[in-house]
Each structure stands twice: as structure tokens, then as C-alpha cells.
Computed example of a mutant assay.
Amino acid sequence: MDATIIILILIGFLFFSAFNVLREYERGVIFMLGRYWKVKGPGLIIVIPGIQKMVKVSLRTVVMDVPPQDIITRDNVTVKVNAVLYFRVMDPQKAIIEVEDYLYATSQLSQTTLRSILGQSQLDDLLSKRDEINSQLQKVIDEQTEPWGVKVANVEVKNVDLPQEMQRALAKQAEAERERRAKVINAKGEFEAAEKLGQAADT
């Protein structure tokens, strides 16, 4: 009697475990006896225990922070740069089969690409041509994640931390530029004033 109850409980457990509900933004990659079968979802999905296995994949956009990277620019300035990556799975089958962990792989790829692309850039370009660099990063990373079924929509460089001595040098440069502009404005004002005085004397 006890054995019969245990068997019935196991059968009931297996029966109910076969039913899975996937949300609108989820898909299930189904394997049958170890081989890829199909992608299912959303809605109610039946997975036969012991024969089939389902791996869930989210289709929502993932916002991933790229941790700060130490980068030596083309003009030999050491900076610390971080970024943010926006991507989503477009092909659940590839995301599960073609790469072991698409989230980890995308994170590692974004870090190496960030160091590579920014290492080829001048510091001035890194500070003033941010949009161009973001577009280049997005294009390169997206091309490499495409075989994994991952679409990189956007990459944004967030912060560029300069060494203290470089910050002081840039501050001095900015101050010198402000002083130069002030002198130009003053000289222009004096010239216009002298010109008006000359015109008044002529009349």
C-alpha cells in the first residue's frame, strides 16, 4: 500500500512538472534526448520529463554595465573608462547552442572590444567624438555577437577618468583659453570704442 502511494505521488509529480508557463517575453529551447528539437512559447508548454528538457531564454533588452577598463590611448595617456551595453536575444536557438553562456560571453567581448577600440583613439577624440566611438563599438560588438543570436542595439561610453596630472593640465589649458578669449573681447571693445571716438572727432 505504501509503495502504491509513493508511485502515485511520483506519477502526479511528473505529470504536473510537465506543464510550464512561459511569459510573453520568454521562449523555451526544447531538447529531446539531448538533441535540439524546437523553440516554443509563450504560453503553456508541455515538456515530457526524462525525455525532453527546456532551457528558458528571455527576449527582453539587457542593460549591462561594462566595468572600468584601464586603457592606454594612442597618444600614450592612461585612462579608466567604463560603458553600458544594450542588447537582446534575437535567436534563442543560437543563444543556447552556439555559446555556453551568452551573457558572460557578451560581457567579456564588450570589455576586450572597449580596450581595443579606445586604445586606437587619441585622447582628444575620446573626449570630443564620443558619438563616433559609441557607433564604432556597437558595430564591432554586434558583428561578433550575431553568430550567438544576440543583437547589440547600443553602446555608450559613460565615464572617462583622467590621471590627476592630466586633469590639472586640461584645467590650465581651459583657463588659458578663457584668458585668451577675454583679451580678444577686450581688444575688440577697445578698438570699437576708439573707432567711434574717431568718427565723433571727424564730425
Rank of each mutant, 00 (worst) to 15 (best):
Thr113Glu: 12
Arg88Ser: 12
Val62Thr: 10
Arg181Asn: 03
Leu103Lys: 03
Arg178Val: 09
Arg178Gln: 09
Glu175Lys: 05
Glu177Arg: 07
Ile71Val: 12
Asp70Glu: 07
Pro92Met: 04
Asp70Met: 06
Phe19Asn: 08
Ile6Lys: 10
Asn134Asp: 08
Gly149Asp: 05
Val89Phe: 13
Leu44Trp: 13
Tyr102Gly: 02
Val140Tyr: 07
Asp131Gln: 15
Glu100Val: 12
Ser17Lys: 12
Arg168Val: 15
Ile11Thr: 11
Phe191Tyr: 15
Val39Asp: 01
Thr4Pro: 10
Val157Pro: 00
Gln164Phe: 11
Gly119Ala: 03
Ala201Cys: 11
Leu85Val: 09
Ala182Phe: 13
Gly12Ile: 15
Ser107Tyr: 15
Gln52Ala: 01
Ala174Phe: 04
Val184Asp: 12
Leu127Thr: 10
Arg178Glu: 10
Ile9Arg: 08
Lys188Gln: 10
Gly28Ile: 14
Glu195Lys: 15
Ile97Asn: 00
Asp124Phe: 08
Thr112Cys: 07
Gly198Glu: 13
Arg23Pro: 01
Val81Gly: 02
Phe31Ile: 13
Val152Lys: 02
Glu24Val: 05
Gly28Asp: 05
Val55Lys: 05
Leu33Phe: 03
Asp142Thr: 01
Val29Phe: 00
Ile117Leu: 10
Thr4Tyr: 15
Ile133Ser: 07
Arg35Glu: 11
Met54Lys: 07
Arg115Gln: 11
Pro49Asn: 09
Ala83Glu: 01
Leu44Gln: 05
Arg130Asn: 13
Leu8Ile: 14
Asp125Cys: 06
Lys38Asp: 09
Ala201Phe: 15
Val89Gln: 09
Pro68Arg: 00
Glu132Thr: 14
Glu192Tyr: 12
Gly41Lys: 04
Gly28Ser: 04
Ile72Pro: 00
Thr73Phe: 06
Glu175Asn: 07
Ile72Leu: 02
Ile45Cys: 13
Gly149Ser: 02
Arg181Ser: 06
Glu98Asp: 05
Glu132Val: 13
Leu8Asn: 14
Ile46Cys: 10
Val39Ala: 00
Arg180Lys: 13
Arg178Phe: 06
Ile133His: 05
Leu109His: 00
Met54Asp: 02
Arg74Asn: 03
Lys151Thr: 04
Val140Leu: 09
Asp131Pro: 10
Lys38Leu: 09
Ile185Leu: 07
Lys56Val: 07
Val89Asp: 11
Ala83Lys: 01
Arg35Pro: 02
Gln108Glu: 11
Tyr86Cys: 00
Arg181Gly: 06
Lys196His: 05
Met64Trp: 07
Gly149Gln: 01
Leu103Arg: 03
Val152Gln: 02
Phe15Pro: 04
Gln108Ile: 13
Glu26Pro: 00
Thr4Ile: 15
Asp142Phe: 00
Gln69Leu: 03
Asn82Val: 05
Tyr102Phe: 15
Ser128Lys: 14
Glu24Thr: 05
Trp37Ser: 09
Ala169Phe: 13
Val84Thr: 06
Lys158Val: 01
Pro163Gly: 13
